[in-house]
């Protein structure tokens, strides 16, 4: 699909002046070392080494079943890694496949890592505004009025200020996903994870979600995105990782990976994608 968005300069300059900027610059936002994940006897991830700097946008691409979604789900512990180490914002969460924080600390941590799901996962019995306010009240301890105000700001920001009292069933796929992004952002996350955020949306409506993500990236948000939107990945990413069969086959800047892939498997994947466009 054609996403008519021009690449704009990242705003890392302003980020560095942020209060947490200098400290954060010294350590990666996310560090994954030697991570592995198995479901029973099936090994879906192995020897994953990954580092995401603060303010960096990385994109995970690869064929279905390559372990992209599992990897991103491991980053906020929706899946527990079987082995390896995971650090987020300098805090070790998993060491040798064991989760270190207690349950209450984990809840706190998860709120700091926003997650956007492929199927939106909005709460169908709550309005758009309530979807966004719920965790602010119960996880962050904000007052209801304060949470609602913040939710309204975010809905305005994603172009849904007029839809705040709509139920999810009355919103299009693109609108639902934008509400889901606003819901994750309401927790003031340090890192945002996107698991194929446009896969369940009609092609015509994808652009509205991609624009929100682009703007978010330009604001300096640290992001990890699993996507099949290669054009978008090329435009938005600082680093692109190609996964296949549970390992990172190749990584590089968008120009390196899409322009001159080194690995045969990457070539095959990109060629197959090109063919499907015909």
């Amino acid at each position: 699909m054609n996403v008519s968005m021009e690449k704009q300069p990242r705003m890392t300059e302003t980020v560095q002046s942020a209060p947490r900027g200098q400290e954060a610059a010294e350590q990666p936002a996310v560090q994954v070392s030697n991570l592995g994940k198995s479901f029973g006897a099936v090994e879906v991830l192995r020897d994953i080494e990954l580092e995401i700097s603060t303010g960096e946008v990385i994109t995970l691409i690869g064929p279905s079943g390559s372990g992209k979604s599992t990897l991103i789900r491991c980053m906020n512990l929706l899946e527990t890694p079987s082995s390896g180490t995971l650090q987020v914002m300098g805090e070790t969460l998993v060491q040798d496949g064991k989760i270190l924080p207690k349950r209450s600390q984990l809840q706190e941590f998860r709120a700091k890592v926003g997650m956007v799901f492929q199927s939106f996962n909005l709460f169908p019995h709550l309005s758009a505004l309530e979807n966004i306010s719920l965790a602010q009240v119960h996880t962050l301890g904000r007052r209801r009025a304060e949470a609602d105000e913040r939710s309204a700001q975010l809905l305005d920001s994603v172009g849904l200020g007029q839809r705040m009292n709509h139920m999810p069933a009355h919103l299009s796929g693109g609108q639902q996903q934008r509400v889901a992004i606003a819901r994750a952002l309401a927790m003031d996350p340090d890192v945002m994870l996107f698991d194929e955020p446009t896969s369940a949306i009609d092609p015509e409506l994808r652009v509205e979600v991609l624009k929100v993500m682009r703007d978010l990236a330009q604001s300096g948000m640290t992001m990890a995105i699993v996507t099949h939107e290669l054009k978008f990945a090329r435009m938005i990413s600082d680093q692109v990782l190609f996964l296949a069969d549970g390992t990172i086959v190749e990584r590089g800047t968008p120009d390196e990976l899409f322009g001159a892939p080194q690995h045969e498997r990457t070539h095959q994947f990109l060629a197959a994608i090109e063919e499907t466009k015909l």
Binding site: R20, S127, Q153, D156, M164, D215, S219
Partner: peptide, 29 residues
């Protein structure tokens, strides 16, 4: 479905500086 027929839970409005929070500032700011 329509907002006109609904009574909002509250009527919050976005402060102008945060109408698009990612333009030129970080989320935390």
């Amino acid at each position: 479905a329509g907002p006109d027929s609904l009574t909002p839970l509250s009527t919050p409005t976005a402060p102008p500086e945060c109408a698009a929070p990612w333009h030129g500032m970080r989320w935390h700011e």
